[in-house]
Design a binder for these strands. Structure first.
Length: 484
RNA sequence: GGCCCCAUCGUCUAGCCCGGCCUAGGACACCAGGUUUUCAUCCUGGCGACAGGGGUUCGAAUCCCCUUGGGGUCACCA
């Protein structure tokens, strides 16, 4: 079995595209087939090299490796559509010769006018009889003379075109609804539906798994293959990913590029899992699963028919699940680039830097959703920070100065660091002034971390070290005195 | 508007193909408790859906029809 993902390098990899690629990949892996990547780069004006690089990077980041395509080659190449034009033109000429294609000299704006008129009449534009019935020899003569024109398909009338779709069942189109679509543009370059139909067949693609927006393209592609006597693949049109507004996911609703999620520090496993769960399910209970598990259970028939709304909140939950499940040393590795970016860890970290980072990562693992969140949370462990509003308030509360003073004194007496029984110590200090332990813990945390949340205080004391911890307490005391 | 597709908790979904086991299951979110020195994690409980109407049948979320609603697509882009 052979499947393909065919992105056009006109932008970054979209969540929708990523999921289509993922389904194709899962299907190939499930059945021991081949996952082919074909680059549809026939739109010269919009193609960019960066887009291609970015798309390939995103696929790799998600763990979707391809068996044939750019950078890996294969027996059914070339894998850039632009390099397959010889074959496309050959088919074009054959179509013209056999009469199922014809040259159309009607100017673009006139075709548009016809279409609008048809629509205004609540109908469907199909073709312009004038150009469709033009004598072929006359057409060739005008073409040879350099008259601008496109090539259209002479779409047959009244034929039922039945798509056998693994997710939708049978979908039937009447060929009378299909217009005489443009097969080659004025510059001679074949259009998508023509090139795609040909390439899929030539690449021996057996299953076309793609977004539902392509469902309406299918009759055109079927016609191409039928005229050419090429085999027809099986289909699976997967539902769209929708935004919160219920419409096809777009930039308006939020980040749509895989790279955006990567940059924000989502674990790739989480995005993979989440995307797989959009329109697919293994069973009635399984929510968290690995690529291997997906592969073991993947079936086209289990793909949902209706569109799925992308829920960033659930994605975040899942990201947290994966992050928490990551072993500490691995977590430290993953988080490193963000810490370096924030300037908290040097570009060339020492062994001590890395060891400390691992401890920091361990201390925060239960509190993080994304890798990218660590720098701001853990900054206080690396630099002096100003207390936030709530911490400042806790520090300025009445009686706090005395309690902190007592605690500081008690701490200074200890040689052991961090003090093993911090809670006991805190209790003592509090009791000494008839206060509750919380009255000490809270300002201590505020003085040390600048916030009211975070890892256990013993851990913080340890990570900060004796000198820094005591210094921060003293500083808080001094500031408190000035404010009070 | 034409054509095509779709329709279970707010969201992702199981169940539907092969009617009874469904007083419709799970997850996210939300709400209420509990654990915890904070935050978070974790645990327990709760809230909450078969779009509507007709059939078929002893029996329908499951089959059929209609209505309604939503979406996709109508490029010399892919």
């Amino acid at each position: 079995m052979r499947v393909r993902f065919a992105p056009s390098p006109t932008g970054r990899l979209h969540l929708g595209g990523a999921r289509t690629a993922l389904f194709n990949w899962a299907f190939a892996r499930r059945h021991g087939g081949r996952f082919v990547l074909r680059v549809e780069d026939t739109d010269r004006a919009r193609n960019t090299e960066e887009s291609l690089t970015s798309i390939l990077d995103s696929l790799r980041w998600l763990g979707l490796d391809w068996d044939e395509g750019p950078e890996v080659g294969g027996e059914h190449g070339p894998y850039f559509q632009s390099e397959r034009q010889g074959r496309h033109r050959e088919a074009l000429e054959r179509g013209l010769r056999e009469g199922w294609l014809y040259r159309c000299f009607v100017p673009l704006d006139e075709v548009r006018a016809q279409r609008e008129a048809a629509r205004a009449a609540k109908g469907n534009w199909r073709f312009d009889p004038g150009s469709r019935e033009l004598d072929p020899r006359e057409a060739e003569r005008r073409a040879a003379a350099g008259e601008p024109h496109v090539v259209r398909m002479r779409v047959p009338e009244g034929e039922r075109l039945v798509i056998h779709d693994h997710v939708r069942g049978e979908v039937t189109f009447d060929s009378s609804e299909v217009e005489d679509w443009v097969v080659a543009r004025a510059d001679g370059v074949p259009t998508y539906n023509f090139a795609c139909a040909l390439d899929d067949a030539d690449m021996a693609v057996t299953h076309v798994i793609r977004g539902e927006e392509h469902l309406v393209n299918t009759p055109k592609q079927m016609l191409v293959r039928r005229f050419l006597g090429l085999p027809e693949p099986e289909y699976a049109h997967v539902p769209l990913i929708l935004g919160a507004d219920g419409r096809k996911l777009s930039k308006r609703t939020g980040d749509t590029a895989v790279e955006d999620y990567r940059a924000r520090g989502y674990p790739p496993e989480a995005l993979f899992n989440f995307l797989a769960l959009l329109g697919f399910s293994i069973d009635d209970k399984t929510t968290l699963f690995s690529p291997d598990e997906l592969v073991r259970h993947f079936e086209l028939g289990r793909i949902q028919k209706g569109g799925a709304v992308f829920d960033p909140v659930k994605l975040d939950w899942m990201a947290g699940e994966y992050l928490r499940a990551t072993p500490t040393d691995e977590l430290a590795r993953r988080v490193l680039p963000w810490m370096q970016e924030a300037g908290l860890v040097p570009d060339e970290p020492s062994a001590a830097d890395l060891e400390r980072l691992e401890r920091v990562a361990g201390a925060f693992r239960e509190r993080l959703t994304l890798y990218g969140e660590l720098p701001e949370r853990a900054r206080f462990l690396y630099e002096e920070v100003e207390p936030d509003a709530k911490a400042a308030q806790a520090l300025a509360a009445p009686g706090v100065a005395e309690l902190l003073q007592d605690l500081l004194a008690a701490l200074e007496e200890r040689s052991e660091w961090p003090p093993a029984d911090l809670p006991g110590l805190v209790r003592e200090v509090a009791a000494g002034r008839g206060a509750k332990p919380g009255a000490v813990m809270k300002p201590l945390r505020a003085a040390l971390t600048g916030t009211l949340g975070g890892p256990e205080l013993v851990e913080v004391l340890d990570l900060l070290g004796r000198e820094r911890s005591l210094a921060r307490l003293r500083r808080a005391l001094a500031t408190g005195a000035r404010n009070g």
